[in-house]
Amino acid sequence: MTSCSGTVLLSRITAGIPHSAAYDDLPYTRGGAVDRDAVGALVQSAADGDAAAWKALVDGLSPLVWSVVRAHRLSDADAHEVYQTAWFRFAQHLDRIREPHKAGSWLASTARHECLKVIKSTRRLTPTDDPQVLDGISEDRTPEESLIESEEAAAEAERIRRMWQEFEELGDRCRELLRVLMASPPPSYQEVSGALGIAVGSIGPLRQRCLRRLRARLVARGVR
């Protein structure tokens, strides 16, 4: 009975998100944000025992949690553990979350606090260029296979890699903000605020500054 409602809500979340040919296999890579009312309803359904609703929450909010963890530049092992802690705690709190439609912010700020604890306890940060990330494009993941099929696609892959490299070399504030903003679907400013502990009102101006700084770097390096 309850599982039906989960399925309906899942389609509500995915509806209206256009796909581009190369990224068909990646959910939520484009366009619209998760419908916040739908998130609230999904939390409600999941709390009532609907596993499909929970899965929809994981699909919709995992990239946000991962982005928060990545923004804080933890080691891979720490990143994995913080991600798990956030989700396990979310499962525990499912029926006590005061504002279910803000579950994304809840997860983002939980992940952030755990990241800060890791940083505090290890005081060890990973070097700027995570070779695994930069090498990622050559690994055999499905979206890439299709990319590397033509020369044009290879050029596109190279462009993406160089853009990513320039992004990685931005100052900490910009790198953190952009890493969270690029979660898919795009996070709300409320969620970004939870993820980074910065005021909602300062996100817009900072975003603009950081994107323009990155664009200037890309232009200077001839990446476009």
Binding site: Y23, L26, T29, R30, S62, P63, V65, W66, S67, R70, Y83, V133, L134, G136, I137, R141, P143, E144, L147, I160, R161, M163, W164, F167, L178, R179, L181, M182, A183, S184, P186, R207, Q208, L211, R212, L214, R215
Partner: peptide, 19 residues
């Protein structure tokens, strides 16, 4: 252009640093 760059980063993240 800002929006387009953010979107390009989003696609890059989905490929280079997915969950």
């Amino acid at each position: 252009q800002d929006d387009a760059l953010e979107e390009a980063l989003r696609r890059a993240a989905a490929i280079l640093d997915p969950v």
